[in-house]
Design a protein around this nucleic acid. Structure first.
Lengths: 228, 228, 228, 228
DNA sequence: GATGAATGAGTGTTCATTCAT
DNA sequence: GATGAATGAACACTCATTCAT
């Protein structure tokens, strides 16, 4: 993952800075170290959970449905996760890591600042399209696991804040409260994703929408040499 | 409700334009017309539902809890609402009407455009603080009643779009896709509300946060003579 | 209602002998004497109950449905009947009286013995077709009010027994246990009615079926100069 | 089970001919194959259901009562039957198979035609005495599961019809509509059973009653060399 | 006298979780 | 190590009945 150096800027910089754990999957459960096969079963359960939680929501989803989707017996579930809530939380953490990764990679693809910014949002929206579960699971987390939900937003916000602060320091964008900007940006992305991906059941957001959003944000950040 | 005339502008104009039904409370159930007492019972149930859904979420909320909170017997519930889902949906519609009303009123309080804009957001954030249920119930609606959720956002967006288009026509703000802007604005408000009202368990958003948000939006809309 | 005298015979004689109360509708409830209007309301409730119990069965039927069908308020029901079970029992008694009346009248229409017999069954089957509720309500009575059910069959059986005994005395039919014959005849009629009226949803049993049934019974009773 | 060959006749032939599946108990639920223990639990539930439905009727019977009677937890019920209605229907099918089996066996015990006929009815009445649930459950089926009810009668009738037709062909009984006769015979047996088993709470029908019934039927069928 | 609002016990059913095999 | 049978608490909802107006 290359980071954009030198041209430090707002959004792109931000997305590039999220701290991402490098060893994603825990390989032990309650002390047991997982075998190859165990690892695979665990992965199958997580993936099944993403599908099922995404499609049905936390409450309609049931352990039976998840284990069925994963092709294992009901009891097997509890060899890998201590509860329904536990796998849910793990899923949020997992998706959080992956979306931040996607956004970083996206932002890094831009060479000019405007492009980078646009790519960051585009990556987020693309991830949303590919993983509608992210959006839906996050909404469920509100009640299922508020702490995890908060952590999710805080981690993304932290990345934004760091990037925005650097950009401010370098005079690339207007001086402002970086945290407010961070939450505003996340919110904008979330609802645009909801409107043009989820509701439209589209596999991607129309380019023009991404452009409009990026332009709005660019202006809002008071970016010099912004979009256009 | 005074509307800003002549100086039609972006946000303020938008918030001022939401079409709001003036006769809010339905007064009949399944054809029956409600007596005074019935009206009161129904109101108590709705209020209790707002508290309970807001505090526990749709699934943890139960009819027993709602009726207990309302001080009526379990069976009484079904004289006024046909199901748990039904009262939930009614609640969304109700809150939607009230939040739009609050935003309109807020926006109308501003005399200059910048003030109006700021007041619109402030009103929304104040409403969120007073009715945390709005935010939480909306999140639940994702799975409980997607159509109602969508309607909620679409109604608010429609108000924004109308106002933004007018402002564009009058050259007050930059020419852009009004719908994209609308969803971006809603998202920004929603997450800022989540961060500074819900998480902070504050009764209001710090003034400076409102200012920062308004400034960001003002710049993003390319408002002439904007905030500052 | 003419009774067959002189030519005393089996079935026809039997059907003609059921003791039928002549003043059918009780005109007071819990001491209250019913006004004209009250009488009408009570009748409407009974009729509605016949429809509803017949269509839905005892348990699916509800007081609300009955009162709705009768066009009165829920509470009004309890001014005329003390409980759901009470109106059900009254209905059984009522239908019992009416079916016995119908059978008597039918039987009386026959001039020869064979005709009379045939007419008795035909009348029963016609009544079944016009009042499917009879059959269905009787089946429900098994658990709802066993005593009433038993009374229903015993009353019909009593009529048969009396007629059969007389016919035996006059040498018209074979000497046998009249009660066994009575229950066999009732059972035969009931299931034929079920098969050719209820299942066929027909408004009457095909003539040929009535003929076959009458012939079987005629032979079974060892009737001299019977059917043919 | 020996069948009467050569002397093919009416009732006995009929009862002897019911097609009876030889592998009675389904051993899998929703695709799952039942373990030994599972099989036992399932059986216990069916037996408990027979008792409870028989004693209380469909509606008064509750899953709690059934599971209590079977000595298992409430939830266990749903591992074996998908609903209250489902176990009810299974019960009807089960009882139907068993009563037809009993009747066949009974009829086969007769050597002369008159004996066989008598044994068929006697077997039916004995079964009724041992399984009052049959009678009571059938009556409930009217509303609970009309299709199953109909199937029950049709299967028994089919056996009768086949036997009666053969007997007619061989000149043993009078030529007549076999289906009408079948329903008449079933009805006669049913009500005699109700009167002398259920109401008398007797463990068997008095011999004389069986004799009388058999004689009536014998005459009704126009049997040559009939009873006596 | 009629109404209809209120009651609350009771139902069928679901499902996360445990544990013997 | 994996299974799947068993559990039982919990829930949404119904309805006969009561009673104040």
């Amino acid at each position: 993952m290359t980071r954009d150096e030198g041209t430090g800027n707002g959004l792109a910089a931000g997305t590039a800075q999220w701290p991402i754990e490098e060893a994603p999957a825990p390989t032990s459960v309650e002390g047991r170290t997982l075998s190859r096969k165990g690892e695979r079963t665990r992965g199958a359960l997580l993936e099944a959970a993403e599908q099922v939680f995404g499609a049905l929501g936390y409450h309609e989803a049931s352990i039976v449905k998840i284990t069925e989707a994963a092709g294992v017996a009901q009891g097997t579930f509890y060899r890998y996760f201590s509860s329904k809530q536990a796998i849910f939380e793990e899923l949020v953490v997992d998706l959080n890591r992956r979306v931040r990764h996607a956004m970083s990679e996206g932002a890094a693809r831009g060479t000019t600042r405007a492009e980078a910014e646009r790519h960051g949002f585009a990556a987020y929206l693309r991830f949303t399209a590919e993983h509608p579960a992210l959006y839906r699971i996050i909404r469920q987390a509100e009640f299922v696991s508020p702490a995890t939900l908060r952590e999710h937003y805080e981690k993304i916000a932290a990345g934004y804040v760091e990037g925005l602060r650097r950009a401010m320091g370098e005079g690339e964008i207007v001086e402002a409260d970086a945290e407010v900007l961070a939450y505003a940006l996340m919110g904008a992305g979330e609802l645009v994703g909801m409107r043009w991906v989820l509701w439209a059941e589209a596999s991607e957001v129309p380019e023009v929408v991404v452009d409009e959003l990026a332009a709005f944000v660019s202006r809002g950040l008071g970016a010099r040499n912004g979009w256009e």
